[in-house]
Design a protein around this nucleic acid. Sequence first.
RNA 1: GGAGGAGUGUCCCGAGUGGCAAAGGGGGCGGACUGUAAAUCCGCUGGCUACGCCUUCGUAGGUUCGAGUCCUACCUCCUCCA
Length: 424
Amino acid sequence: MAEATSSKPETKSDFLRIMTERGYLHQLSDHAGIDALAAKGELTTYVGYDCTAASFHVGNLLSIMMLHWLQETGNKPIVLMGGGTTQVGDPSGKDESRQMLTLDGIEANKMSLKQTFSRLLRFGEGPSDAVMVDNAEWLTPLNYIAFLRDVGRHFSVNRMLSMDSVKLRLDREHELSFLEFNYMCLQAYDFVELSRRYGTRLQMGGSDQWGNIVTGIDLGRRMGAPQLYALTCPLITTASGAKMGKSAQGAMWLNADMKPPYDYWQFWRNTEDADVGRFLRLYTLLPLDEVARLEALGGAEINEAKKVLATEATAIMHGREAAERSAMTAQQTFEQGVTSADLPSVTVSAEEWNAGIGVLSAFVRAGLLASTGEARRQIKGGGLRVNDEVLGDERRVLVDADRVAEGAVKLSLGRKKHVLLRAP
RNA sequence: GGAGGAGUGUCCCGAGUGGCAAAGGGGGCGGACUGUAAAUCCGCUGGCUACGCCUUCGUAGGUUCGAGUCCUACCUCCUCCA
C-alpha cells in the first residue's frame, strides 16, 4: 500500500468512500485533492485502453467498474481508446516479440471493444455523461521534432530511470527499448491533452500503470496544466494466487461472441470460497450490507453467495435476462440432473452426421478438446461422458439413438463442461 | 571489434552420456474425496487414417547405421574486454 493512503484523512466524497469500502484502491496521489473535486462532481477522470484484442477480459473489468462508480457519484468518465498508442505498443511485461498490429486490425479491435462500455456507462453530452475518445486523434498528426521541442524537453530521463518499471528492467539486465520510453511519454502526453480538452484531472488504471500516470502528472505540472491526480487499483489475484481470469483455456473475455454468457456465469460460479466477499464488492453493484450477509454464509451455504455473484456479474456484462437464463441452465444441469437445451451447443451438418461421427472427433468438433489424441487420453482417465454415461469405447460412433436430449447428443468433459452436439 | 556463455517438448522453468517422443518441476486438464470451493492423493500433459506412421531441442548444411548431443556457417540474447 502507498504511504499516501496510510494517513487516512477523512473522506467527504461518495466516490472515494465507495472506492475505499469496496476495495478498489491501491494507490492514490493526493487523497484530499481528489476527494475535494469528487465531492463537487468535478472529478473528470479517464482510463486508457489499448486496442490489442477484440475484447476486454476480466482483468480489464476493474477499471471499467471504477468508471461506473465515478459516474454514479456524479463525475464525468472519459474512455480513452488507444488507437494511437496501440500502434506503438506497450512493450512492458512481454519478452516475446509481439506482432505488429495493422491499422485495420487496431480499428477493428477498437470497434469491438466499444460495446463493453455501454452497459456500465451512460454516454452523452451532459456534465456527467461519459465520453469516448481515441488518442490517434492527436498522436497521429504529431511531428517528431515539434513533439520533442514542445513536450519531450519536459521529460527528465533521470526521473524516468528511477521509476519502478524501468529500474526493474535495468536491475534484471533485461532489454529496455527506446520504444518503451516513448510509450510512457505518449501516455503522459495523453493525460495533458485530455486535461486541456475535457478538463480531465484524474487518471485511473491498474497498479502497473502508476509510473506512467505519475509521469503524466509531472508533465502536466511542467506544461502548466492544473494539478493532475493518479489513482490505481490493485492487481487482482485469486486466493490461490492465480491471475484473475487467465487460464490455459485463454482469457475470460467480456464479449459474448468470444465467451458465451453461460461460460461467463460458470466462471464466477467457480470462485473460491475465500474470494466470494471480495469479488462481490469488486465485480457486482450489490449494496454492501447485502454483500456482508452473503459473505457471512458458511460451509456449503456459500454456494448460494456464489450463485448471486455469478448472476450479478453476468447481468452487468450480458444483461439480466442472459444471466438468469445461465443460472437456470446451471441449476438444471447441476442440481436437477436434467439436460438443458440452453447448454452451449455445436451444430454439425447433415452430411457430417450421416457419415457417422466417431466419439473422438465429436469431442474435438464440440470444442471440448483440442485433438483426438487428447480425447483418447481423457477416455483412459474416465473424463469423457456421452449423455451422462462414462465413455469407455474410443471407437464408438454416434448414431441417431444417441440424440436423446432435445435431438442432440450431450457431450461432457469432466463434471462441469457440457456441450450439446446438434445435427439437422 | 575481441574473449567467453546461452538458445530444449509452441504455457513457463529446466536436466540431458551419440540410440530420445527426450529426466524433473510449475501450470493446466481429468479421476477420487467434496459443496460446481480449497486442501490432499492418483493419472495425463507432441500429431495422426494409431500394435504402425509423422513431426519436435534457435536456423541451414555436414559427419554417422543413428544427432538435442559431434563438425561448419548463420541468427538472437547475455557476460567480460575495447
